[in-house]
């Protein structure tokens, strides 16, 4: 196993020079306080509504074609009186050293100036390589061109592409919202305030477990939370350098 990881690290060095992501304009990140998450899945629902995700139904779930860009993982420890439950929301980690970017044969996934790992739908040819390389299992594939029933197509978000068959997709950190706020700030000739941009999941979280912000700004709420002692990242040993930071659950 470690041999494989070393090989991947070697390939990463060839692909991108180290620290290239520090030269970008922004470094958007999400901090998730696992201590506050109670697993209500409101974020999942809002993600479906915001990003035009199709609902695949029972058979689709059985075939592993479910479209949750954001999922809640459950960890249950212990026997009945002493049960400890942990919920971890997992979305695309927007890794700085993303393994999926090495794999793609057509460069449909790359890093843009917002410091986000992005997926270009109309360039994607659907080789599935990125999904295979992704250690977090967050990429979703369009097996069909999904259709919405008559009244439901009215609720599609006009700012987001409705993806077609044969295209890989994943969490975008709600790029359309980032775009919208940046647009407004540009019109007002001012800088974007901290906390002005909110992803759909952060907005809908009832306990405020999810915080979105710019890590490049040292005064932002996210930077302060990220410096917390409880902070950790998923699969840190793979050195993918995720942009999603989790704050550990404290259990007595």
């Amino acid at each position: 196993m470690s041999g494989v990881i070393d090989k991947i690290k070697e390939r990463l060095k060839d692909f991108r020079r180290p620290g290239y992501y520090k030269e970008f304009d922004h470094h958007y990140a999400i901090v998730i306080d696992v201590d506050r998450c109670n697993g209500c899945e409101a974020c999942v629902v809002s993600c479906y509504a915001e990003n035009n995700l199709p609902v695949v139904g029972e058979q689709g779930c059985e075939d592993n074609r479910v479209f949750n860009w954001l999922r809640i993982e459950r960890y249950i420890e212990g026997e009945y009186p002493d049960v400890k439950v942990k919920f971890i929301p997992v979305m695309c980690q927007q890794c700085d050293a993303a393994p999926c970017e090495i794999g793609c044969p057509v460069y449909a996934t790359y890093h843009n100036q917002d410091g986000l790992n992005v997926q270009v739908y109309n360039r994607c040819v659907g080789t599935f390589t990125c999904a295979t390389y992704c250690p977090y299992d967050v990429r979703r594939f369009n097996w069909f061109s999904y259709k919405w029933d008559k009244p439901l197509d009215e609720q599609l978000n006009p700012d987001v592409t409705v993806r077609e068959m044969g295209v890989m997709e994943k969490c975008t950190f709600c790029i359309q919202r980032i775009r919208g706020v940046n647009d407004k700030a540009k019109d007002g000739k001012r800088k974007v305030k901290d906390g002005e941009i909110q992803t759909a999941c952060a907005q809908s979280c009832p306990t405020g477990a999810i915080t979105f912000g710019d890590l490049m700004d040292p005064e932002s709420k996210v930077s302060k939370l990220a410096a917390s002692k409880r902070g950790y990242k998923l699969f840190e040993n793979l050195e993918t350098k995720p942009s999603v930071i989790y704050l550990k659950r404290v259990m007595d």
């Binding site: 790359y110 843009n112 100036q113 986000l116 992005v118 270009v120 739908y121 109309n122 360039r123 700012d159 987001v160 592409t161 975008t172 790029i175 359309q176 775009r179």
Partner: peptide, 11 residues
């Protein structure tokens, strides 16, 4: 600025 990045127009 960023005019030739894919995601400037394709989101």
């Amino acid at each position: 600025k960023n005019g030739q990045a894919c995601w400037t127009c394709h989101i």
